[in-house]
């Protein structure tokens, strides 16, 4: 595991952004997630790793209530954002998702122009007073997503015409255009080639200055490269959670060690 390049471990103000305690998720009769306790810190990249089907994506989707859209899904326990319970009946998931944005496994640009893709969020949330402001938001988001230089001349072209890596950066731009506080990424690089993956990883590291990023990944190397904190999930349970360096070099739990050394998973 010596070839793994570790991200800088400068965890600034360790303020807790999202806190989850005793979270259970059921799909119908299937108990998919058991007793998960996690505290996600602000301005930090947190990686969820684990074998497929371990519940890491399920947990990620709990954090902005995307599981609400799946019929038959039931969630117990408590998840707070800045101390507010996001499953409180008074909370509107629509408002929550504006604060907790999400990027998906497969790039899913809308069949609209690049501009309209990015402007969609600000428009529905009413974040701009004028066309000029939207233009500005779009440009900023695209610049932050490191896509501006490539698409500035063809903002009216359909987003579906971009390459896979560009599409995924477009989706990131679309997510950050609503200025969320947390950005959830569900295996954002699994459909991309290595070069596009490297670009996205670089981008994630930059995004850390503004957002709290939570990334689900299949690749331990990627988790080691981009994250400051890592959580290991196995069979619907959170096995171990801590500093990335500690998880990869000195795991406390034997299951974590087995997974990292490639014996299970």
């Amino acid at each position: 595991m010596d070839d793994i390049r570790y991200a800088e471990r400068v965890v600034s103000a360790a303020e807790v952004k999202i806190a989850a305690s005793r979270v259970q998720v059921f799909y119908g009769l299937n108990h998919a997630l058991k007793d998960v306790d996690v505290e996600i810190l602000g301005k930090t990249v947190t990686a969820f790793i684990g074998p497929s089907g371990c519940g890491k994506s399920t947990f990620l989707r709990c954090l902005n209530r995307m599981n609400d859209t799946i019929p038959g899904c039931r969630i117990e326990g408590r998840i707070t954002l800045d101390g507010h319970d996001i499953y409180d009946p008074r909370v509107d998931p629509v408002q929550l998702r504006a604060k907790v944005g999400m990027v998906f496994q497969k790039p899913n640009p809308f069949p609209k122009s690049i501009y309209d893709n990015v402007a969609y969020g600000p428009r529905i949330h009413g974040l701009a007073r004028s066309k000029a402001e939207i233009d500005e938001i779009v440009e900023t988001a695209l610049r932050r997503a490191a896509l501006w230089e490539e698409v500035k001349d063809r903002l009216a072209a359909p987003g579906t015409g971009l390459s896979g890596g560009q599409q995924q950066r477009l989706c990131i731009a679309r997510a950050i255009a609503t200025s969320p506080e947390v950005l959830l990424m569900d295996e954002p690089c699994s459909a991309l080639d290595p070069i596009a993956t490297a670009q996205i990883e670089e981008l994630i590291d930059e995004l850390r200055t503004q957002f709290s990023v939570v990334i689900v990944t299949h690749s331990m190397q990627q988790a080691a490269r981009v994250s400051q904190r890592t959580a290991f999930f196995h069979l619907g349970r959170l096995v171990e959670y801590g500093e990335t360096g500690q998880i990869f070099t000195n795991p406390h739990d034997p299951r974590t060690e087995s997974y990292i050394s490639g014996r299970i998973g």
Binding site: L81, D82, H84, D88, V91, D92, Q95, A98, K99
Partner: peptide, 8 residues
């Protein structure tokens, strides 16, 4: 942008 705490 909504103020923090306006979730409720």
């Amino acid at each position: 942008p909504p103020e923090p705490g306006s979730l409720f």
